[in-house]
Structures are given as structure tokens and as C-alpha cells.
């Protein structure tokens, strides 16, 4: 953009910087608050509550060691990892062939398949029919109950399809003339060219599964199967608190510190990968959203 430093323009820029800083603070202050609450020692907490600033020397890991000392949190983190990895793998294995088939213009019956797929995107009968299906298949207390119903997202399929459509047709034709079948074309020609979209869609699925909490709550009754978000929710609403945390009158941290520490532990994996995955998401959000 053109930058002419007139007086008006500079005043405007200062205004913008202040506005953006206010927005930034509105986002950051709640996170800061969670951090201080998680690290505040019990004596300060009982004296004056949670301060806005905590002197660096006073920070304590007590709440974290109390949470992680109980076997539930590491177990839940492992469960979350299993659901995320297995879910993402299944989702991609089911999504890629469908997107590839739909991107093949001269496939007989393509329009019918497209209509079948699109209809499920446009009309959903809601929660109960899915619930009856899953319980009828005896999938309760099975990770597949959490993974399969949302495994193929029509939206993600369409995004991937539009990427495949953009690949040059000649490449596929050349491979076919060499006698490759569609399986080989997909594996040797299309997929190596599709790493960016596979990564983007894979990350969409992974974040979705990592954040899932309602379906695990619905279908997993066994405490040892619960993923992190469900465990966190149970801690936050203080339901059956003692099942997850050793908490009593002699506890070395307050309930609020324990809750805040739980939030931070659950958030941490996302925070660690976020700087790397952000650009794929930004791209993915713009790839297939709307079509001309």
C-alpha cells in the first residue's frame, strides 16, 4: 500500500495501532489470568485471592504436580492422542478416494454420487438417529463411536476435490497411457503432488478430533477411556472432583488453581503446534470455501 506520511495519515496510524493493541489485550488478558491462577501459591490465594500480577519468585508448580501426580491426566492425554491419530488416519483414508473420484469429470455416475454426498451435508436429522445407530451397533465404550460418525466431512471433501480438479489432466492421462490403473495413478501421481492439501485437511481433522468432547461424553462411559477435554470438563464443573484429583482440606493448592492448571495442560499441545500449523489453516480457510 502507498505510504504518504501526511499528518492525517500518521494520526490515523497511531489510532490504528492503539485499536489493534486493545484487541490484542482483550485476547491476551484472559489467558494471562488463567496462567496466574494456575501458578498462584495457596497462601497468597487465601490471603488476597488471585492477584493480577504475581511476583516471579512466588510462582509455584504445585497445582500441576497435584494434577499430573494422579494417573487420570496422563491417561487422558494418551487417549486424546489415540483418538486424534486414529481419527485423522481413518478420515483421510475415507476422504481422499471420494474427493479423487468426484474430481474425475468423466466418471460415470459422478453426479449421482455428488448428489448422495451433498444431501447429507444439506440435511441432517439430528443427534438421536445417530445415537440409536451407534448404540445399536454396540459401539459404546469404543473409540470408533467417537471417530466414525464425523469421519468424513463433506466440506473437507469438497475442498480436497477442488484441489484435485486443479491438477493438470495430462499427468493422469500420461500415467494411464503407460498402463497404470486408477489406484496407481492416485498413489504415484496424484498423492505426491497433493502434500499441501493432505496436510491442511489432515490438520482440520486432527484439531477437530483433539477438541471433541461431546461424543466422547456420550459414548464413552468408562473413565479410563476419556480424552482430555471430557476430563477437563468434569474438573471444571467440579463433578466427581475426587475421582480425578487428590483434593481435600490438606490440599496444597486451591480448586481454582487446579482448574486453571487443567485448562493449561489441555491447551498446551495445541499451543505447541499452533505456530507451525497456523499457515496451513489460513490457506485451507481460503481454498475451497466458495466457488465462483
Amino acid at each position: 500500500m502507498l505510504r504518504t506520511k501526511t499528518r492525517d495519515a500518521v494520526i490515523f496510524q497511531i489510532g490504528l495501532a492503539i485499536f489493534l493493541t486493545i484487541i490484542l489485550l482483550i485476547i491476551l488478558i484472559p489467558f494471562w489470568r488463567v496462567i496466574v491462577t494456575a501458578f498462584v501459591p495457596l497462601d497468597i490465594y487465601t490471603d488476597e485471592g488471585v492477584p493480577f500480577f504475581l511476583p516471579p519468585t512466588k510462582w509455584t508448580f504445585e497445582a500441576f504436580s497435584q494434577l499430573l501426580g494422579h494417573s487420570m491426566f496422563p491417561r487422558a492425554a494418551l487417549n486424546s492422542a489415540i483418538i486424534t491419530l486414529l481419527g485423522t488416519a481413518i478420515s483421510l483414508v475415507l476422504t481422499v478416494p471420494l474427493a479423487y473420484g468426484l474430481s474425475t469429470r468423466n466418471l460415470t455416475g459422478r453426479k449421482v454420487i455428488m448428489a448422495i454426498v451433498l444431501f447429507t451435508y444439506l440435511f441432517s436429522p439430528g443427534l438421536i438417529p445417530v445415537y440409536l445407530l451407534i448404540t445399536g451397533m454396540k459401539l459404546t465404550n469404543n473409540y470408533l463411536a467417537v471417530i466414525l460418525p464425523p469421519a468424513v466431512s463433506v466440506y473437507n471433501t469438497l475442498v480436497m476435490m477442488s484441489f484435485f480438479e486443479g491438477l493438470p489432466e495430462e499427468l493422469k492421462e500420461a500415467a494411464r497411457l503407460d498402463g497404470a490403473n486408477e489406484l496407481q495413478v492416485l498413489w504415484h501421481v496424484i498423492l505426491p503432488l497433493s502434500k499441501p492439501i493432505l496436510l491442511t485437511i489432515g490438520l482440520f481433522y486432527a484439531v477437530f478430533f483433539w477438541n471433541e468432547f461431546f461424543t466422547p461424553l456420550l459414548y464413552l462411559n468408562d473413565n479410563s477411556l476419556l480424552p482430555l477435554p471430557v476430563l477437563l470438563r468434569n474438573i471444571l464443573i467440579s463433578a466427581s472432583f475426587n475421582e480425578y484429583v487428590e483434593y481435600n482440606a490438606f490440599s496444597s493448592s486451591s480448586i481454582e488453581s487446579l482448574k486453571a492448571a487443567g485448562v493449561l495442560i489441555t491447551m498446551l499441545p495445541m499451543l505447541l503446534v499452533y505456530p507451525w500449523i497456523q499457515r496451513y489453516f489460513t490457506k485451507g480457510a481460503l481454498v475451497g470455501g466458495v466457488k465462483e
Binding site: I23, L24, I27, L28, P30, F31, R33, V34, T37, V50, V207, W210, N211, E212, F213, P229, V230, L232, R233, L236, E256, K259, A260, G262, V263, T266, M267, M270, Y274, P275, Q278, F281, T282
Partner: peptide, 21 residues
């Protein structure tokens, strides 16, 4: 980067954040 971040967090985490506020 900072204002995109909350989009990636689940509502359970948001619930925890809302509680401290």
C-alpha cells in the same frame, strides 16, 4: 496469530477461561 488462536481451542477450554474471568 494471537487473534486466530481462540478459534482452535475447544469450548471446554473456553469454559475454563471464562471461569477465571
Amino acid at each position: 496469530t494471537m487473534i486466530y488462536l481462540p478459534h482452535f481451542l475447544s469450548w471446554v477450554i473456553m469454559f475454563g477461561v471464562l471461569l477465571v474471568i
